[in-house]
Amino acid sequence: MSTAREVVLRATGLTKRFTTRRNVLGRAVERLTAVEDVSFELRAGKTLALVGESGSGKSTTARLVTALEKPDAGTVEVCGTEWTALGRSALRRERRRMQMVFQDPYASLDPTKMVVHTVGEPLLVHEGVRGQERDRRVADLLERVGLSARHLHRYPYEFSGGQRQRIAIARALAAGPDIIVADEAVSALDVSTQAQVLNLLLDLQRDSGLAFLFISHDLGVVRQVADHVAVMHRGRLVESGPADEIYESPREAYTKSLLAAVPEVSPSRRRERAGLVTESSTGEVVG
C-alpha cells in the first residue's frame, strides 16, 4: 500500500567531507568524511527515521537534505525538483515544500521576535502576507499546534520548552510544506512534554498527509513514529527497512547492539531484548 504513494523526497548517493586541517596555503590536508553514499526515499504521508549515535552523520544528512549544506556528491530531489541543481533564488522559492524543526527549542527561535513574526515569517517571505491577514492565519496555525491567539504578541522567553517546540512546528506548517524534517525535535523535552509533541506530530500527519524525515538517537521515540527506519553508523547507512522489521528482526550487528543498549522500563521488554541479541558487541571506541 505504501508503495502506491508518490516519493516526495529522494536522496541519492549523498556524500559530505569536512576539512579538519589546512596547510599554510589554505589547502585542505586533512578531511573527515561525515556522510558517505547515503541514499533513501521518503513517501508522501509517511515517516522515515534516520537513527544513529553522535557522529554517525545523521544531522549532517539532515543539513544536506534541507540544503543548509552543499553535498560533495549526490543529489536531493524534493517533489520531483532536484534541489541540488537549483540556483539560489529558485531554491529559496522551493524551500517552502520542505520545512525543518530543530532540536533545541531555546536556540531555534529568534529571541528578538514576537511569535506572530516568527510564525508569520514564511507567510511574509513566500506569499507576502502581512498585517491583519497575517495575524489571522498565524492565530489559526497556533491553534493547530495547541496554542492560542493570546500568544501572538509574546516573546520566546515567555514559553516553556514544549511550547517553544509547538511554535517551531507552527512556523514549519506556515509554509504549507509537504515534508517536515525534524532533527532531534523532541530530544530536549521532558518525557511527558515529549509525548505531547509526538502526538501533535502524528495528528498533523494524519490530518494533512505530511511526510516526516525524523532524525533521532532515541530508539524508543523512533519506534512510536516511524514507518521506515534507516540506521546510520560512521557516515554510512548500515541497515534500513520497515520499522517493524528493524525492531523485531534486525540483521546488522550494529543495529542489534544499538537496540540492546536502550534502557527499557519494562522488564518483559528487557527479556525480549536479551533474546534478540545473543551476544552484544558493544565495543567502545577509544580516543
Binding site: V191, A195, G220, V262, S266, S268, R269
Partner: peptide, 18 residues
C-alpha cells in the same frame, strides 16, 4: 509516557500541562 521500543502504540499516553 515513556516511549518503548517494544511496539508502536496508537497514541502515546501524556500528562496534560506542565
Amino acid at each position: 509516557a515513556v516511549p518503548s521500543t517494544a511496539r508502536r502504540v496508537e497514541r502515546l499516553a501524556t500528562i496534560p500541562g506542565t
